[in-house]
Design a protein around this nucleic acid. Sequence first.
DNA 1: CGGCGGTTTGACTCCCGTCAACCAATGTGG
DNA 2: CCACATTGGTTGACGGGAGTCAAACCGCCG
Lengths: 351, 351
Amino acid sequence: MTKILLVEDNDEIRENTAEILEMANYQIATASNGKEGYEVALKEEPDLIICDIMMPVLDGYGLLHLINKNNILKSIPFIFLTAKTERGDFRKGMEMGADDYITKPFTDIELLNAIESRLQKARIQSERAASAKNLDDFFEEIKNEDALEKLTDSKIMNRYKKKQRVYAEGNHPHSLYYLSAGKIRTYKINELGKELTISLFNAGDFFGYNALLENSVYKETAETLEESEINVIGREDFEILINNNKKVAQKFIKLLAHNVSEKEEQLLNLAYNSLRKRVADAILSLSKKYKKEESADFTIHISREDLAHIAGTTTESLIRTLSDFRNEKLIEAEAGYVKVLNEKKLLDMLN
Amino acid sequence: MTKILLVEDNDEIRENTAEILEMANYQIATASNGKEGYEVALKEEPDLIICDIMMPVLDGYGLLHLINKNNILKSIPFIFLTAKTERGDFRKGMEMGADDYITKPFTDIELLNAIESRLQKARIQSERAASAKNLDDFFEEIKNEDALEKLTDSKIMNRYKKKQRVYAEGNHPHSLYYLSAGKIRTYKINELGKELTISLFNAGDFFGYNALLENSVYKETAETLEESEINVIGREDFEILINNNKKVAQKFIKLLAHNVSEKEEQLLNLAYNSLRKRVADAILSLSKKYKKEESADFTIHISREDLAHIAGTTTESLIRTLSDFRNEKLIEAEAGYVKVLNEKKLLDMLN
DNA sequence: CGGCGGTTTGACTCCCGTCAACCAATGTGG
DNA sequence: CCACATTGGTTGACGGGAGTCAAACCGCCG
């Protein structure tokens, strides 16, 4: 049932009006001033508010102001019911966002008509917005339909040399990649030409799926860190698969969710961690990704520049930090490689 | 740009008024009577209609009647602009569903205020309705599943005050959240207690799905930026849905993929951008997320501290940067709010 | 031998984080 | 009702971390 909040300080008018409205089969909540009205509004969430202007404690303008500031209440139709007949008062009320302005004395019919008119209007508004949304959904659906016809079997294998590019930022994705051997990194470049390595991939990883799933262009560049072997899966095949195979969809959902978490963690690191800690993290994440087996100590062959781009710094700064680490016996480092000596201390590195 | 239809038979008033509105940067269509007005309305689909009452051929009431009968046009705000100052005329106009009633003579300010007030109101309506529709769709989907019996009671709605916590890092997720009104942010804290805001959410967004999908604990904390209303969807319901409903799975895959892209972009920013640029980006991302409509300028009420956490810096540094921006006339800022004056320059900010 | 790419070190600068103080507004408790 | 505490915003002074530019070094190959 439609619920109406009536805010009016004069007891007689309030009770009379409430009675009329109840006879018209509305559910009524009442309040005798703006402050009380706001409290009742919060609690009851009426479908419409009728409100006097001149009231003690908090007047009608004040109440309307509060209502408009509240995200939950601001879309409720608001009608002023007042003895203030001056043009200035009327304009002020309307400009503040009231939906109607009824001057006393008024007839029952006027009041009821005004209410119905506003309720009607509110209903139309919400219908309208909802139907726009429906149309979008509809087109969304069509897009996925006719992929079914074009099923072509394509499982190509490619060999890549070191530092070779697989795809570049801005390209349109045509395929999903599966790294069967080697190492891949993806990176972005900012306006000043500085590189940041975003992700590392190892044998057995899929990559390049993000642009496909988001249905957009690549947002990063992928290149090999060393010689690699890559399987290419056609876009259509992948789409059919993910749309029709529950398991595949679940796998990618989980993968994506994990990616998001990882990136969030990286964000926090880059934002506030010292260079020392960022370099330590970079080394550890390489270790985590590429270390062959649990017990053994880890050595990676990587250029200073590449390592710097993982830590988000410059080559020179990275080198200084590596020197520090070397002096502290945390790592062993010579041109072209880094070997982790004390993983625990790296892990506990303070900022 | 906002388009306004002005229907008025008096040439002088029409042209004068149109001129005022054009100066206020609205796009204007005109008509000199109700019939013509209806034709123009159909063709132009204005964002707002201003209309005289007494006109030849078809009067203002007639036009409003036609507009209300037309499904495409009926939700357009409608303002009468008339010499008819009688209470009866006013009531008739409002009862027919007009949104405001301005009597001649009127001042420019009155007219412009009335227009802005109604446009604002219309925006709120559609936002609100669209977000409600989203959730309804979602539950429509749920209903079709065979787990019907379990989830009848699962649509819980919660009210949160400003700065209240929804979930905390490390908690186990029990539900999916849907923000039906208000604003939410998620953030992480590093060992030194520094906060970084990871994501912002607006009415109509889902949040908290990442931990569910990854099948792990929350990796970030979520709290309200202002008073909010949140729908809670039980974990089981969500899991059934996403595992069995192709459309829902696709929706979340796309959402996740987009999240990843966003985070990657943020990574690059945090890694190498100057404080100036990061602050500019923070302001712009707020604008992008919370700006109501295209043309209007954007004001956000946010504490310095919160803004600093979005930019990944300290409150003091943020304040200095804001002062610089203010001196450069890029923004207007006083305690508790920031207003964007020159979006383009903020966007083109160099490092 | 000279050039070249990658690495390392040095010197300098400056951005920005830290600490401290102050102000204004708001709330609070006696 | 006022003194007082508290909170958020702002400004100033200071210093260190890390980026920039330059130069030296080193191994390698033709």
